[in-house]
Amino acid sequence: MTAPSLLADIGGTNTRVALARAGKVIHGSVRHYPNSEFAALEPVLRRYLEETGTGTPEAACLAMAGPVRDGVGTLTNLDWTLDASTLAHATGAGTVTLLNDLQAQGHALGHLAAEALFPVIAGPPPRIQATQLVIGIGTGFNAAPVFDTAAGRFVPPSESGHVALPTRDDRDMRLARFLEQAHGFAAVEDALSGRGLVALHDFVCREAGTPEAATLKGKQIMAAVAEGDALCREAARLFARLLGAVAGDLALTQLPFGGIFLIGGVARAMAPYLAEMGFVESLRDKGRFSGFMEQFAVTVVSDDDAALTGMALHLKAMLELR
């Protein structure tokens, strides 16, 4: 039996590492590591290999939350730079491939358990080879289209979280100016991410004349939403509306008749509230194309390790082509 392959999903907060064989994640092999405890990725991978008693992996597939070019990438929300050749030396793997994390998520679509899929907008079964769209909302924000072609699945890289946040009214403009104070530009990720939810709550509190109330973290805000806190629920409504607008724009750009899939910790936390808080109406609020927007189903993926499944499948396809 050949040696297993090594998988690592590197987010802004945590890194998930696992082993795979024949396109499947090996049961019980997934471990999570807080990035704050490490200065770089290489020590994370070495610790995993030591802890699990794994020898030299046949290959390695790494997915990172940031842009990748020519085998090199820097994480957007973490001061780590990854290089495929350096990682090959650190792991001993003969083949190393480096992906954007949304690319890995895209490769997982269609291979996830039904119980991991939470429908927000139901739709008909997708046509064969229909384009899909995966949107990641966690420490950061990103989106990528997913194409099934005669040559296999193709998921192009993207950095959609850093485009301008859409504005429709005076309140949106005030929000944009508020967000610009941090980076000089109001990007989608500044509102639609973990820190974005905190920023929206801060904005809502200031608009209400109670800036001293803006002391909560993301998980605390969501807990307060469940308890009915007015300001936290208003922040969540603003989040849902903005997410709908952005998802609608992306849907018109990519025409994902195969469905839109929301992934990531913040997406999962918001899932029970999206429909009631205006997400659907905002997604479809596209003027004369509002009726056209009814064709796009939206599903939240609850599997936190879905990217590992996508990497295993991508790596299997790569090795078969060697």
Score class of each variant (00 low, 15 high):
residue 185 F to H: 15
residue 158 S to V: 08
residue 225 V to K: 02
residue 145 P to V: 02
residue 184 G to D: 07
residue 175 L to G: 03
residue 159 E to G: 04
residue 146 V to F: 02
residue 231 L to R: 10
residue 174 R to L: 13
residue 164 A to K: 10
residue 165 L to T: 09
residue 140 G to P: 05
residue 220 Q to N: 05
residue 231 L to E: 08
residue 215 T to W: 05
residue 212 E to I: 02
residue 216 L to V: 04
residue 198 V to T: 12
residue 195 R to C: 12
residue 182 A to H: 11
residue 163 V to E: 10
residue 163 V to A: 13
residue 227 E to Y: 04
residue 232 C to R: 09
residue 230 A to E: 15
residue 207 E to Q: 14
residue 188 V to S: 01
residue 201 H to D: 07
residue 142 N to Q: 09
residue 216 L to C: 03
residue 212 E to R: 06
residue 174 R to D: 13
residue 226 A to M: 05
residue 164 A to C: 04
residue 187 A to V: 12
residue 159 E to N: 03
residue 161 G to D: 12
residue 178 F to V: 05
residue 156 P to S: 03
residue 202 D to H: 14
residue 185 F to E: 14
residue 217 K to N: 13
residue 170 D to I: 09
residue 204 V to Q: 06
residue 214 A to N: 03
residue 221 I to T: 00
residue 161 G to R: 10
residue 159 E to W: 04
residue 233 R to N: 14
residue 180 E to F: 01
residue 179 L to V: 09
residue 223 A to P: 06
residue 229 D to A: 11
residue 204 V to T: 10
residue 142 N to C: 11
residue 152 G to V: 05
residue 160 S to E: 15
residue 156 P to A: 08
residue 153 R to I: 13
residue 181 Q to W: 11
residue 152 G to P: 06
residue 161 G to M: 12
residue 232 C to V: 12
residue 230 A to I: 12
residue 227 E to S: 14
residue 225 V to R: 01
residue 160 S to K: 14
residue 158 S to C: 11
residue 181 Q to P: 08
residue 225 V to T: 00
residue 210 T to K: 13
residue 157 P to Y: 12
residue 198 V to G: 02
residue 161 G to C: 12
residue 203 F to W: 01
residue 204 V to S: 00
residue 177 R to V: 10
residue 220 Q to D: 11
residue 203 F to P: 03
residue 194 G to C: 11
residue 144 A to K: 07
residue 205 C to E: 02
residue 214 A to W: 02
residue 200 L to D: 00
residue 218 G to Y: 01
residue 182 A to K: 15
residue 211 P to F: 01
residue 199 A to Y: 05
residue 176 A to S: 15
residue 166 P to E: 11
residue 198 V to Q: 10
residue 152 G to N: 05
residue 154 F to I: 14
residue 155 V to H: 06
residue 165 L to I: 11
residue 189 E to S: 08
residue 205 C to A: 11
residue 231 L to I: 07
residue 166 P to G: 06
residue 210 T to A: 13
residue 206 R to N: 12
residue 196 G to M: 05
residue 170 D to R: 15
residue 223 A to V: 07
residue 198 V to D: 10
residue 187 A to T: 15
residue 234 E to Y: 07
residue 193 S to L: 10
residue 191 A to K: 09
residue 220 Q to F: 04
residue 194 G to R: 04
residue 223 A to W: 04
residue 216 L to K: 09
residue 170 D to A: 15
residue 144 A to C: 12
residue 205 C to R: 00
residue 218 G to I: 00
residue 149 T to K: 09
residue 191 A to D: 11
residue 207 E to R: 02
residue 156 P to K: 08
residue 200 L to S: 02
residue 185 F to R: 15
residue 199 A to C: 07
residue 158 S to N: 12
residue 194 G to S: 11
residue 196 G to P: 01
residue 209 G to Y: 07
residue 192 L to C: 09
residue 233 R to I: 10
residue 185 F to P: 00
residue 153 R to L: 10
residue 204 V to L: 01
residue 231 L to T: 02
residue 167 T to S: 15
residue 190 D to S: 15
residue 234 E to W: 00
residue 207 E to V: 04
residue 234 E to T: 14
residue 174 R to A: 14
residue 160 S to G: 14
residue 143 A to K: 08
residue 214 A to Q: 06
residue 169 D to A: 00
residue 190 D to E: 14
residue 225 V to G: 00
residue 225 V to E: 05
residue 211 P to K: 01
residue 205 C to P: 02
residue 201 H to R: 07
residue 191 A to M: 12
residue 189 E to V: 08
residue 200 L to M: 06
residue 225 V to I: 07
residue 148 D to A: 11
